[in-house]
């Protein structure tokens, strides 16, 4: 069991990171910490993808010296997926941060439990 984890240390680290991020996103009460957790979670997935696309001794699939066989190159798709994932993650983070700003302006705290209690007392409650 342990040897398997050591051989696939990148994947193991990726899953651990995912777990840390996931629990942070779920259990932290502070919104900013939640967002940090979300970014850690996404980084875990990106590490997993990046390590999948990396094979030691092989090159990026750009033919320069006439070598045509596939064994010389790595699969470029995972790297493309990482890039797409990063773009998605950045935009989601931006939206969430803007929401955090809006909440902070209104309630002067980022603790979601406190905000929830505060919002219950508002006159908006129809």
């Amino acid at each position: 069991m342990i040897e398997h984890l050591l051989i696939n240390n990148e994947e193991a680290a990726a899953i651990i990171l995912f777990g840390i991020g996931f629990t942070m996103l779920l259990f932290q009460r502070n919104l900013i910490k939640k967002l940090i957790g979300m970014n850690i979670m996404d980084s875990g997935v990106f590490l997993f993808l990046a390590s999948m696309g990396y094979i030691e001794g092989r090159k990026a699939p750009i033919i320069v010296d006439g070598v045509q066989e596939t064994a010389a190159y790595i699969n470029p798709v995972p790297a493309g997926l990482v890039l797409t994932g990063i773009v998605v993650s950045v935009s989601v983070t931006a939206v969430m941060l803007s929401l955090a700003v809006r909440l902070y302006k209104r309630y002067h705290t980022l603790d979601l439990d406190v905000i929830y209690v505060l919002s219950k007392h508002q006159m908006e409650d129809r």
Binding site: M96, L99, L103
Partner: peptide, 16 residues
């Protein structure tokens, strides 16, 4: 205020 809070809670679950 309530919609922002609702959106944050909605987004957090959706992000998970």
């Amino acid at each position: 205020g309530r919609t922002t809070l609702a959106a944050v809670r909605y987004m957090i679950l959706n992000l998970l």
